[in-house]
Amino acid sequence: MTAPIIEMRNIEKHFGPVIALGGVSFDVRPGECHCLLGDNGAGKSTFIKTMSGVHKPSRGTMVVEGQEVVFDSPRDAMAAGIATVYQDLAMIPLMSVTRNFWMGREPEKGFGPFKTIDFAKANEVTMREMARMGINLREPEQAVGTLSGGERQTVAIARAVYFGAKVLILDEPTSALGVRQTANVLATIDQVRKAGIGIVFITHNVRHAMAVGDRFTVLNRGKTLGTAVRGEITAEALQDLMAGGQELAVLESSLGGTV
């Protein structure tokens, strides 16, 4: 087994008197998809925000490629190769695909104060990277607002991959999508994983997790309930863990296993 790219050890995060995370350990290896499951309020968002440098952990250590690190800002995390794709904040709809793709890292040409964005290069790379992810854009200047939700996620993923992400954190990428778009995003995840990138896939949908996950960690009320490897756990068991046991079991019998 390869060494993990990023390791979170006993992470705690307190917001005043509230203990949002009470000692969570988690790691990601290259080329795997590690699913982080949990119901609303379980602490998933706090955890990934800690991982991506938005929050500083109150206690616990983070190790990236064997080195202990402290992130002061999302920029630090990005520099360390940790890219996060947020569900709703991934893209700016009024701007073109190219402008979104390169936002913050625009390629420039020219010299001194007369530098301009190298749009020829920017457009070409954008088209190529999007095609690699299986999306053929009509034109790179089209506004992101014209893309579907799944396509927007894919632009964000392609962007992170192109800029050298080693770990890709996906915050509920499928939660607002239809069946077909979900399948596309899951296929993209599989493709990215094959390129040797570690993926953290946050979701509360067990079926989506089972479709692509290599390992599964369940968060409940700020604590992890352990990590399971693919094939060792069933969807029903995951579902139970997420809900914290019994209550859902009662529900499930009346719903006939549709949840």
């Binding site: 947020y86 700016i92 390169w102 936002m103 913050g104 964005i117």
Partner: peptide, 23 residues
């Protein structure tokens, strides 16, 4: 034409999303 111009669009389009990518 410039990188700064892209940041102007990004800041007004969605400040939070722009911050997340380092603008």
């Amino acid at each position: 034409k410039t990188r700064f111009g892209n940041w102007i669009f990004a800041s007004g389009g969605d400040a939070q999303a722009a911050r997340y990518v380092g603008v």
